[in-house]
């Protein structure tokens, strides 16, 4: 089993440790904004699941800062 895998983060190919959780990726990509939502393969992920969801090779992640202006 490879130690690394390739995923797409915010539209860019990235190499990360195999089995990385969303929590790890948020830290790794320095997405420290409190106003952060995470999209994993087209689905919205609730923050309480960041620790338990591991990403797989080829997964698509978007870190999004929601818009609250009007």
């Amino acid at each position: 089993m490879n130690d690394e895998m390739e995923i797409i983060v915010n539209g860019h190919k990235e190499t990360v440790p195999a089995g990385s959780t969303l929590s790890y990726l948020i830290h790794h990509f320095k997405e420290h904004d409190r106003d952060l939502i995470v999209e994993h393969n087209g689905r919205f992920v609730y923050s309480r699941r960041y620790n338990e969801i591991s990403v797989r090779e080829g997964d698509i992640i978007e870190f999004i800062n929601p818009n609250f202006g009007g």
């Binding site: 800062n65 929601p66 818009n67 609250f68 202006g69 009007g70």
Partner: peptide, 10 residues
Amino acid sequence: YGGVEGFSGM
């Protein structure tokens, strides 16, 4: 709900 900021919106 609608929200906007910069060049993007939701």
